[in-house]
């Protein structure tokens, strides 16, 4: 048998020594650029909904509850931490933190809800200047997602009126 090869292999193994870390007993470090759970800064957010319009996983919902109040809800369920929201935020209100241990029994632990008071201009959505035409979604007026059922509906209305149910979309729940 190829004894020399075997001995070489064993030597490679032994030279390396033990490399596994004592995680989870000691915390694991991540580099600075790590993309972990996004954190939304309510102080900085201007409610332009650029993040919501460009989230590939559709995890950021926006609902205008009245003229002055816009709710921005980050669900965090199937967020892939791609960091597009942080890229596009004109006010740098979103940071990709280095949190990665996000397993939880309560899904709302990873989510975040922002209640934003809007001036008259911002709610038209135009304050989001897209870097390229590819990010443009031509969304004007009031935006209505289905916050109750946590569904991205992606509709906007020129005027905010009383009925804000989404009756034309049949939401299937077993």
């Amino acid at each position: 048998m190829s004894l020399a090869a075997k001995i070489k292999e064993v030597l490679i193994c032994l030279r390396a020594g033990r490399v596994t870390l004592p995680y989870p007993f000691e915390p694991a470090t991540v580099p600075k650029a790590f993309r972990g759970r996004p954190i939304f800064d309510v102080e900085r957010c201007v409610g332009c909904a650029g993040c919501a319009n460009n989230c590939p996983a559709r995890e950021i919902l926006v609902e205008d509850v009245c003229q002055e109040v816009r709710i921005l809800k980050y669900l965090g369920r199937r967020c892939t931490y791609c960091g597009r929201c942080a890229d596009l935020c004109p006010e740098n209100a979103i940071t990709m933190s280095n949190e990665f241990e996000t397993a939880t029994d309560e899904i709302s632990d990873v989510g975040q809800t922002l209640e934003l008071f809007m001036g008259t201009c911002q709610r038209c959505g135009r304050c989001f200047t897209s870097p390229t035409p590819l990010e443009e979604l031509k969304l004007k007026g009031y935006r209505i997602d289905d916050l109750m059922n946590e569904r991205w509906v992606f509709r906007s209305k020129p005027f905010l009126n009383e009925e804000k149910t989404v009756d034309d979309i049949d939401i299937e729940l077993d």
Partner: peptide, 14 residues
């Protein structure tokens, strides 16, 4: 247990 520990050490594991 010895077998497993030793195997782990050869495999650079804890």
């Amino acid at each position: 247990g010895i077998v497993r520990k030793l195997t782990a050490r050869i495999q650079s594991r804890q």
